[in-house]
Simulated assay, not measured.
Amino acid sequence: MTIRVVIADDHRVVRDGLCYLLDQEADIEVAGEAGDGLQTVAVAAATRPDVLVLDLYMPGLDGHGVIAALAAASHRPAVIVLTSALDDENLVRAMHAGATSYLLKTAPADDVIAAIRDAATGTATLSPELLTRLTQAMRRPPAPDPLQPLSPRERDVLELIARGLSNRQIARDLDIGEQTVKTHVRSILAKLELQDRVQAAIFALRHQGGR
């Protein structure tokens, strides 16, 4: 069986190197290449490869976006993330989204080839170091929600504060009394240990508008 592979990386030299490497393997065929995320999705749809070798740092749509797009596609190749991203966040996010394997660009050529063959049969590949990090990261408790002390209504008020609305405008938008808004604002400042509306707005913006 010939394994059909698409290579997605925004660096031409990386794509050329992988193409040269894979062309030496009798059972692997490079079916296509892509230099950005949107092109990757299009090439994968057109060529229907068995395996996609994907960098995370891509212009336009990044590698995570590509994985998400492929999850909803009619054809889903096995995805090998081949990246320089060393952090646990990218590792966990990619594997959780459905990547089959995660390799660093420092991996030996033989490891990349073996990962492609494994991925084509549905077998995941992680180095012992990355497997340990993934396991540890998955066991960590989620970070506490900084807005947890607030009630749902207080979160609504905080979001509107972040948009620059006055108490009167907030009251109109939420269909509540202006005095009630003032009470909510005082409660928000007290619960979050903030001094004024400006600090509240900054706090909200740092945490995605209070949502």
Rank of each mutant, 00 (worst) to 15 (best):
V198Q: 15
K105E: 03
I188L: 11
A31K: 00
M95W: 13
G209K: 01
L70V: 09
V81G: 03
S151V: 02
L158M: 10
L147V: 00
G35H: 11
T132K: 11
A44R: 02
A71M: 14
A97G: 05
T135S: 08
D196R: 07
D175F: 08
L192K: 06
D55N: 12
V53M: 10
V14T: 07
R48K: 15
P142T: 00
A162P: 09
R168F: 09
A200V: 12
D36E: 14
D27S: 05
Q39C: 01
A109Q: 13
R206F: 03
D111L: 15
L86G: 04
D145M: 07
A107M: 08
T183G: 11
A200Q: 06
K182D: 11
K105V: 06
A85S: 15
A115Y: 07
P128G: 09
E193V: 13
G98H: 02
G63Q: 01
L103F: 14
D145V: 10
S151A: 12
L205H: 10
T180M: 00
T123S: 10
Q148W: 08
A120W: 01
G209T: 02
L174S: 05
A46Q: 14
S166V: 10
H207Q: 01
D23Y: 00
L82E: 09
L22F: 14
V92S: 02
G98N: 03
V198S: 15
D62S: 05
Q136A: 13
A107K: 01
Y102L: 02
D9P: 06
P146K: 02
R172T: 05
P142I: 00
D62V: 05
L103H: 14
G65D: 02
V66N: 00
D10Q: 06
V157K: 05
D110F: 15
A73L: 06
A44P: 11
G35Q: 08
T121V: 13
V112W: 05
Q195S: 14
D27R: 01
L192E: 02
A201H: 12
L158Y: 07
D87V: 08
G35L: 03
G177H: 11
V6K: 09
T47H: 09
A26M: 11
